[in-house]
């Protein structure tokens, strides 16, 4: 296993270009006291590591590095754990190669 997986993902995301839509997160986590197992699975399953556990034990999402795959939507949208949409037109990840 990689010794510092978090660091590695950040390094990977550094290669990418983004146009961040400040103040308009396209994914929102439903406020909760205890995160569901689905939300907790996103800490590992998100390929951009957008999901993190806060000091208070809540799962939080920061979409700036999102590569818009839809994995969290597939796992968490139906149950209402998250609200998911694509970024506004032109915003988000800008692939050079794809």
């Amino acid at each position: 296993m990689p010794s510092e997986p978090s660091r590695r993902v950040e390094d990977k995301l550094f290669y990418n270009r983004y146009l961040v839509d400040s103040g308009r997160a396209h994914i929102k986590v439903r406020p909760h006291t205890t995160p569901s197992s689905r939300l907790l699975s996103m800490l590992k399953a998100c390929p951009a590591r957008c999901y993190e556990l806060s000091d208070k034990g809540h799962v939080e999402v920061t979409v700036d590095g999102c590569i818009e795959c839809g994995t969290c939507r597939v796992i968490c949208e139906e149950s209402g754990d998250i609200e998911w949409s694509y970024p506004r037109g032109g915003y988000g990840v800008l692939f050079k190669f794809g």
């Binding site: 296993m1 990689p2 993902v9 699975s41 590992k44 590591r49 994995t71 597939v74 190669f97």
Partner: peptide
């Protein structure tokens, strides 16, 4: 350039707690 990647079922990631980038590094 070389396109290099790996994919697995989302349900399997969910079940095992493996990370996609960990798998890629492996």
């Amino acid at each position: 350039c070389i396109s290099l990647g790996i994919g697995c079922l989302v349900a399997d990631f969910q079940r095992t707690g493996e990370t996609p980038y960990g798998l890629l590094e492996g």
